[in-house]
C-alpha cells in the first residue's frame, strides 16, 4: 500500500511540524509514506470565495502528482473535504487511476477507518479541548454533528484515547464554527474575529491547556486571537498529540 502525504500549502509554510508529525505517525504504523514534491494548494480558498473554476488547474496538478498512490493522506479536514466534494466536478483526468477524490483521506479519518491502530506510542499528560471543525464534522463525519439526532461518536476522541495521559474535553457548543471560513476571515473580518474570540473563550472555559483538532486553518485563526489577547491556552494539531512523547 503506497501512501502519499498531502501537505496543504499553508501547513507547508507555517506548520512544518504538523507535516512532520503526520509522517512520523503514518510510518510508525508501518506504512510506506512518500511526499511528492511540487505540491501547492488544493484550490479550496478559491472555491469558497466563489471561484471554484479557478481551481481547475490545481485539481489537475493534484491528480497528476498523486496519480500513483493508493491513498493520499493530509492533516487538514477542510482541504481534504474540498478535494472530495469538488474534484469530481473539476478534474478531467483520463488515466487508469481512480479520481483523487475517492482516494484522499484526512489523517485521523484514515487512521480510524482504514489503518485502525489499537495502540499508539504516544504520551501527552495534558488536558486538551477538542476543536470539532465544521468541515471535519459536517462534511467529513469525523464526529456526530450536534444538529442531528444520531448517536454520539468522535473519531478524534477515539484516537486520542490511545494516547497515554491525555485528558480530552469538549467546549460548550461543541461544534460551533470558530469563524475562520477561508476568505470569510478577511471579507467579514469583524464577524470572524468575534466568532474566534467566543470559540477560544469556550475552549478556555473547559480548563484545558491546549486546543486540538484536525484543521490547522481553524487553529491558525484561533491562535491569532490567542496571541492578540495574550491568552493562556495554546493550539496544537492533533497529529502532534498522537505522536507526542512527553
Amino acid at each position: 500500500m503506497r501512501v502519499a502525504l498531502f501537505v496543504p500549502c499553508f501547513v507547508n509554510a507555517l506548520y512544518p511540524e504538523v507535516g512532520e508529525a503526520s509522517y512520523k505517525l503514518l510510518t510508525s504504523l508501518g506504512l510506506d509514506v512518500d511526499y511528492p514534491l511540487e505540491q501547492t494548494c488544493c484550490g479550496q480558498p478559491m472555491g469558497n470565495a466563489g471561484y471554484e473554476k479557478d481551481a481547475e488547474p490545481l485539481a489537475e496538478r493534484m491528480e497528476a502528482l498523486f496519480a500513483e498512490y493508493d491513498y493520499v493522506v493530509g492533516p487538514s479536514a477542510s482541504c481534504v473535504s474540498f478535494v472530495r466534494e469538488a474534484y469530481p466536478r473539476l478534474s478531467h483526468h483520463k488515466g487508469e487511476h481512480k479520481c483523487l477524490s475517492s482516494r484522499i483521506y484526512e489523517i485521523c479519518e484514515f487512521l480510524h477507518d482504514v489503518v485502525k491502530p489499537t495502540a499508539l506510542e504516544a504520551r501527552f499528560p495534558h488536558k486538551v479541548s477538542l476543536h470539532n471543525s465544521c468541515h471535519g464534522v459536517r462534511l467529513m463525519g469525523l464526529s456526530a454533528p450536534s444538529e442531528q439526532n444520531i448517536p454520539y461518536y468522535s473519531k478524534l476522541h477515539n484516537l486520542l484515547s490511545l494516547v497515554e495521559g491525555v485528558e480530552v474535553v469538549e467546549p460548550e457548543r461543541r461544534d460551533e464554527c470558530c469563524g475562520f471560513g477561508g476568505l470569510f476571515s478577511i471579507e467579514e473580518s469583524a464577524v470572524s474575529v468575534s466568532m474566534g474570540r467566543d470559540k477560544v473563550a469556550r475552549h478556555i472555559a473547559t480548563g484545558a491547556e491546549f486546543i486540538t483538532g484536525a484543521d490547522s486553518s481553524c487553529l491558525m485563526h484561533m491562535q491569532g486571537v490567542i496571541e492578540r489577547e495574550k491568552l493562556s491556552i495554546r493550539t496544537k494539531h492533533i497529529v502532534e498529540i498522537l505522536t507526542a512523547q512527553e
Binding site: 507547508n12 509554510a13 507555517l14 512544518p16 473580518s189 491562535q223 496571541e227 492578540r228
Partner: peptide
C-alpha cells in the same frame, strides 16, 4: 492588514518549510 486590524495576530512563517525539511532529509 484586515486579518490583524479586526483583532488577530498573523501566523508565524516557519524558517524552513516542510518541503525544505523533506529535501534536506530531515523528515525521512
Amino acid at each position: 492588514n484586515p486579518w490583524c486590524a479586526s483583532g488577530r495576530e498573523m501566523p508565524h512563517f516557519a524558517k524552513k518549510s516542510f518541503r525544505v525539511l523533506w529535501n534536506e532529509g530531515k523528515i525521512k
